[in-house]
Design a binder for these strands. Structure first.
Length: 416
DNA sequence: AACAGGGTCAACCGCAAGGAC
DNA sequence: CGTCCTTGCGGTTGACCCTGT
């Protein structure tokens, strides 16, 4: 409005791209790289503005783009990350390296948001619409803490997304030494794929743990820890000072036991999903019909958050095996605090232990019906009459989000 | 067959951040 | 330090498609 368009030259084409234009753009980039987008159209013989070319390339022509239906797991990832990150599509897209932010955004707006609404969940806050239910018992404190953690983490992830972009820019100097094939279409197993489109982050507490156990000589608080070039070589070198790009590899090393193979999911498909979900792909009709509340795909129920986990001192207390642990919940998880609080447990147990915290107390949590089917919770959902169930839903919802952040990465996810 | 309404998604627009000068 | 330029992001648009009447 009032601002001149980016393509103020008359005669520049707009609208859908033709196959000929695609071919010109592809051929030029394959041969020369995109270079300056502004200069590209003239060099490539296209009557388009550079911005249009860039969009066409990044959203459609790029060879490493996965097209087609979103898998169940991708849907779960999007929803759960959206709960943490909000409409930060580019940050969400870093967890789905073969999907573009535009595609994710479209999919959210046209599919996922509507499903959440149908389930009685506010797609903005990811809370049950009847949120007053949460304030009725002591569990609301846990929910509030989790929400607080999520908001806090969200802000941090946003910053890290920016840093990750900076890292990408810095990585350009490395890319010249990497084959052009990897540059244009890094395979999932390629180091470059992790390097360029690595996961944005996970919880600070895990990163802090990482700095304690993986980089024991590094005594600086995590928030200001400097990049350690020597630890994981190239990937670590490309890491931004506070970014956890590459972190998941370490997290994998220290904590895959116990949680690596058991992906707890937030939304469960039931009924005929087993027959239709080969490879995790479901058609829309089935997705709509079978989308169920919350649960664990393998066990049928999702462990609850330990209602005693967050105590009155605003710290987390939990037990893993024979070991008791207390962590502060004051947003100051640092290498120091973690070391002092957790030195009694072994590194290999921590991720499992912390996940236990988040997903603990599974003994009595038969929540396979907690979220309810669409018929269960039509209208205002199941919240209309059952306070405890809604609290369970909310807890499990956030449990799953943290579980996702703890467990998932493009490299270890089943779909990558 | 024709039309209307809704859904989908590629593409556009405007803004902001960051680098170069 | 200020300005310009480039790039990336998120919101929005509109053409196309599908389905129901």
């Amino acid at each position: 409005m009032g601002r001149s368009p980016c393509c103020d030259k008359v005669g520049l084409k707009k609208g859908p791209w033709t196959p000929e234009e695609d071919q010109k753009l592809l051929a030029y980039i394959e041969e020369h790289g995109h270079g300056s987008w502004r200069a590209l159209p003239a060099k490539a013989g296209l009557q388009r503005c550079g911005k249009s070319c860039r969009l066409r390339w990044t959203n459609y022509l790029r060879p490493d783009i996965k097209r087609g239906k979103f898998t169940l797991q991708e849907e779960q990832t999007i929803i759960q990350l959206h709960a943490l990150l909000g409409n930060r599509w580019s940050a969400i897209a870093t967890y789905l390296p073969k999907r573009t932010d535009n595609e994710i955004k479209n999919y959210w707006n046209t599919h996922l948001k509507k499903r959440l609404v149908k389930m009685g969940i506010d797609p903005v806050t990811h809370k049950p619409k009847n949120d007053a239910l949460l304030s009725n018992d002591g569990q609301s404190k846990n929910a509030a803490n989790l929400s607080h953690m999520a908001q806090w983490e969200s802000a941090r992830l946003e910053a890290e997304a920016r840093l990750a972009r900076q890292s990408k820019l810095r990585s350009n100097s490395f890319q010249s030494s990497i084959t052009s094939q990897e540059l244009t279409a890094p395979s999932p197993s390629s180091p470059l794929s992790k390097l360029v489109v690595g996961p944005a982050s996970c919880l600070d507490v895990l990163k802090a743990w990482n700095s304690v156990w993986i980089k024991p000589m590094n005594e600086v608080p995590v928030a200001s820890a400097s990049a350690n070039i020597s630890v994981t070589g190239l990937a670590r070198d490309l890491e931004s000072p506070t970014s956890t790009l590459g972190y998941f590899e370490n997290a994998q090393h220290i904590g895959t036991s116990g949680i690596g193979g058991n992906s707890t999911v937030l939304y469960e498909f039931v009924g005929n999903s087993s027959g239709s979900s080969e490879g995790g792909i479901m058609n829309n009709e089935e997705s709509e019909e079978d989308w169920k509340g919350f649960g664990n795909s393998s066990t049928g129920h999702l462990p609850e958050f330990n209602k005693d986990g967050i105590n009155e001192n605003n710290s987390i207390s939990f037990t893993s095996g024979l070991q008791d642990l207390t962590l502060p919940m004051d947003n100051t998880w640092t290498a120091e605090s973690l070391r002092s609080n957790t030195e009694q447990i072994s590194p290999g147990n921590f991720v499992e232990t912390f996940t236990d915290l988040l997903l603990s107390n599974s003994g009595d949590g038969d929540l396979s019906e907690a979220g309810g089917t669409e018929s269960d919770n039509g209208g205002e959902g199941s919240g209309s009459g059952n306070t405890s169930e809604n609290c369970e839903d909310n807890k499990n919802y956030w449990n799953s989000i943290f579980n996702l952040v703890n467990n998932s990465s493009p490299s270890d996810s089943a779909m990558f």
